[in-house]
Amino acid sequence: MARIAVITHEFDRFQSRRGLLLRQDSPYMLFDVLAELKRRGHSVQIMRGPSASHNADIAVLHVDATVTPSDYVDYARGFPICLNLGATDISKRRISGAILEEGANWSGQVIVKSNLNHWGTPEEQLNRKSVRAGKAVPFPGAQTFDRYQVHASLADVAPEIFRRADLIVEKFIPEIEPDGFAARFWIFCGDRERCTRYVSPQRLVKGDDTIRREPVAVPDELRALRRKLGFDYGKFDFVVHEGRAVLLDANKTPGRARNLSKIVAAGAANLADGFENLIHQTGRGRIARETVPTAYG
C-alpha cells in the first residue's frame, strides 16, 4: 500500500475543516479518487503549504492556481515521485490552441476570456485569505474576469484588449449541432480516462446545462499535447474544428460533479485504477519526474 501526499495551497480548503477525507464537502474531483484509494488501503495525507515534512511514497501537486508558485514546485521536487509536476502553468496563453493576435487572418466569431484558469477566481480567493491571515498576497494583481464576451469578428474587439496580460482573444469555434452547440471534455488519471461530448442549447457549453451527451474517442493530437504539457491527472476541454482537435482549457485541479453520485462513484473508481497503475509503474522505475511521459490508454 502506498503513502500518498496531496500538496495544496496553505489557504485552499481541499477537505473539511476537521480534516476528514471522507466528508463529502470538497469541491475537487481528486477528493473522490483519494477516498476510493483510501478505501483500498492506501494512506492519504493533505500537505497544506510547502514547509511541512513528509514520509510519502508519491505526491500529487494540487495547487488550485493557474501558475503554481515556485516554492511549491521546489517542495514537490523533494518527493520520490510527484504527479503533475510538469503541469505548473495552465494559463490560456500557454495551452489554448485557438489564440488570436491582433490583426490575425480570421473572419469568424471571437471570444474574450481571462488568461487565468476559472476566470481568476482561485487566485482572488487565495489572495483574500492570505490578507485575512496577515500574509502577503501570493498572486499580486490577479483579478477575476467572468464576463466571457463573444464578438462577431476580430475587428469588434477593442485594441486595448490585446495589450492586457490578463485577457486573451480566441477563435469562437463550438461544434454546431441542429439543436445547439457541442464541446468535449476529457478526464484522465494515468492510463484511465473518460471522454464525453456534451451538447447544450447554450453556445458556451457547460456540463450542467447539457441536453445530451455521448462518449467519444480521444484524438491522438490531444494525447501528444497532454504529454507535452506534463499532465498525469486532470481535465482537458476541447472541440473538433475542421477535422482538428483544438484544446481550449486544461485543468490540473478539476472540480467534482454534483448530484451525480452513481456516475461520480464509477468515475472515481476508474481514475483510482489509473492512479494505482502510476504507483506500480513508479515502483518499477518506468516513469521519471518531469521528463518522461506517463502511460496513456
Rank of each mutant, 00 (worst) to 15 (best):
D89N: 10
L21K: 13
L167V: 06
A272T: 06
P174F: 02
N105G: 00
P254Y: 07
A165R: 07
F11Q: 04
F236S: 03
Q109K: 15
I95E: 05
N270Q: 15
L126H: 15
P219T: 01
V246Q: 12
T210M: 07
L225P: 02
E124Q: 06
K252R: 15
L278A: 11
G103Y: 08
V33A: 10
F11N: 09
F31Y: 09
I95Y: 00
W106Y: 15
D273T: 05
A133D: 15
L61K: 08
V67H: 03
T121L: 10
D57T: 10
C82N: 10
G234W: 04
T210I: 15
D89M: 06
L37H: 11
P69S: 12
T294F: 14
L247Q: 04
E242H: 06
C82E: 15
G86M: 08
E177V: 03
W119A: 11
K113W: 03
R77K: 15
R194L: 04
E290H: 10
W186M: 09
K129N: 00
A224C: 01
G283F: 08
A266S: 06
A245H: 02
L260I: 02
R164M: 14
P27L: 08
C82Y: 09
A224R: 13
F188E: 08
H9F: 13
R18T: 12
H280I: 01
L34V: 02
A136W: 00
D208W: 11
R258V: 13
S53W: 07
V216S: 09
G120Y: 11
V131S: 12
C195N: 14
A224P: 07
E242N: 15
A152D: 11
F79N: 05
R147I: 00
R128Y: 08
R128H: 11
L30C: 07
K262W: 10
D166S: 09
R94T: 07
N259H: 13
E242D: 12
F31G: 00
S114K: 00
D156M: 09
V112H: 00
S200L: 04
S130D: 03
R13V: 00
I4Y: 11
R17I: 10
K129E: 13
R197L: 08
A295P: 10
G103W: 07
L61W: 03
